[in-house]
Nucleic acid binder design. Structure first.
Length: 152
DNA sequence: GCCAACGTTGGC
DNA sequence: GCCAACGTTGGC
């Protein structure tokens, strides 16, 4: 079982929005970066996903979700009306991947990026090393450290 | 709103 | 295959 971190802009889709979806969850669509896509393809149901709010007043890890589907082709890539349409993707050879995630819990306190940067045990997080990667892996150790920061 | 980081595109 | 031009992400 693996751990991940997924960024979302709260103005677009927040942890609150995910909670409102309940057990049905939300397709994590629109990922259009190969590295991030490859991480989606490695996900299996039951994997844990940190939800990270980006491009907002206080960028932070705010809670956690769970992968509840297998990876599958992202249908938005084939829909010309979608903002995520990619003419280079096709039904025969789908380029992009989506998984569905469901809300698990809000963390006691958000863990701000600022604090993550100040924490030596988290210096190797992919979040910090590749600032533009929207889906990234998290180690068990990193997850534990983040959880501890959330209750302090 | 600025701009650094960095991924993608396309000419050669 | 190199690399300049360009577009996007996301912190600040």
């Amino acid at each position: 079982m693996a751990n991940w971190l997924a960024k979302t802009e709260p103005d677009e889709f927040s942890l609150d929005d995910l909670e409102a979806r309940g057990k049905a969850g939300e397709p994590w669509n629109g990922i259009r970066n190969y590295q991030a896509r490859n991480h989606l393809r490695a996900m299996v149901p039951g994997d844990r996903v940190l939800i990270y709010h980006s491009a907002c007043a206080e960028p932070a890890v705010v809670g956690e979700a769970e992968v509840i589907s297998e990876p599958r082709p992202d249908p938005d890539a084939l829909d010309p009306a979608s903002r995520y349409y990619d003419p280079k993707s096709s039904a025969d050879n789908p380029r992009w991947t989506v998984i569905t995630v469901a809300f698990r819990q809000r963390w006691p306190k958000p863990v701000p990026l600022k604090l993550i940067k100040q924490t030596p045990e988290l210096a190797e997080m992919a979040l910090l090393r590749q600032s533009r990667l929207s889906v990234s892996p998290v180690t068990d150790e990193q997850w534990l450290v983040l959880e501890q920061l959330s209750v302090q």
